[in-house]
């Protein structure tokens, strides 16, 4: 039995991991220095979620994939250039901040209300995907709050695999302590999954996918609603880069035996 799903992937931009980050005090709280100028990428975990969604869509004809992003419109437009060639999706844009310093509750509210507004969304077939963490706030709380608002009571976090069983139920592998997986069986949609890295490679860039996606991306950007997020929930006393610079002792031109002895003594100490 094949089921057509409605998959909504929540994901936004984070600074390109190769960039050097520096916190500053902005008008409404902490921010990153030159935040609007920093090159961005799709949050890596949300990226995995998107690839999983696309893979599921490939095997379940009729499945629709939506990408819901909350971020500055201009930055999201740039982000689309780097991801829209990867997999087919319909874009839903929320114009607002993408800062890690926002309260996840505010973000979840904005995302859930955007999901509710997707025209023609069939909630009985709904799978809401996202990262189980983000490279900005790294809290791992947004997906559950979205689930609560959408009335979905089956939530999985740190998933690496979702298999649709012949009877339509799901077999889900979640990362738990000690490098183990918890295996669960869920009756079916609707569910919410916060993905870990999954097992799929990043898809190659496909120009035709890009061309097709772009037809919905530009209108979505044009009609992006501003998302008003409250920023007064958290009182930040300070945000700092870790200062500890270690005094590295360099041992060179030393025989391998000496080095090995020292390392073993240290391991044993």
């Amino acid at each position: 039995m094949t089921t057509a799903f409605n998959i909504v992937v929540c994901g936004s931009l984070v600074p390109d991991p190769l960039q050097t980050l520096e916190p500053i005090q902005g008008p409404t709280g902490p921010a990153l220095k030159n935040e609007m100028m920093l090159p961005s990428v799709l949050d890596p975990w949300a990226g995995h979620a998107l690839f999983e969604a696309a893979n599921l869509a490939k095997h379940h004809p009729g499945t629709k994939v939506y990408l819901v992003s909350l971020g500055p419109k201009a930055k999201l437009q740039q982000l689309m250039m780097t991801i829209a060639q990867k997999v087919p999706f319909e874009f839903v844009c929320l114009d607002g901040p993408a800062s890690g310093f926002l309260d996840s509750r505010e973000v979840a509210k904005a995302l859930a209300s955007a999901i509710e507004k997707i025209p023609g969304l069939d909630k009985t077939k709904l799978l809401v995907f996202g990262g189980y963490s983000s490279a900005s706030r790294d809290a791992g709380t947004t997906m559950q709050m979205i689930a609560e608002q959408l009335g979905i009571s089956d939530v999985f976090l740190g998933a690496d695999e979702l298999k649709v069983q012949p009877d339509g139920s799901f077999r889900i592998m979640e990362r738990i302590e000690g490098g183990q997986y918890q295996i669960s069986s869920c009756a079916g949609a609707p569910i919410v999954i916060g993905w870990a890295t999954g097992n799929l490679p990043e898809p190659p860039n496909n120009p035709q996918v890009g061309m097709a996606n772009m037809r919905t991306i530009m209108p979505a950007l044009q009609k992006a609603q501003p998302a008003a997020l409250k920023t007064d929930g958290i009182q930040y006393a300070s945000v700092q880069l870790p200062q500890q610079q270690r005094q590295t002792k360099i041992v060179k031109d030393t025989p391998v035996e000496e080095i090995a002895k020292e390392i073993v003594a240290w391991i044993r100490s």
Binding site: P17, G100, F101, V239
Partner: peptide
């Protein structure tokens, strides 16, 4: 009461509190 937590993948540490 103040807590510490890291942001941006352990690249900066914040000290914060909440009144709610």
């Amino acid at each position: 009461l103040q807590i510490q937590r890291w942001y941006y993948r352990q690249r900066m540490i914040a000290t914060l509190s909440r009144t709610a």
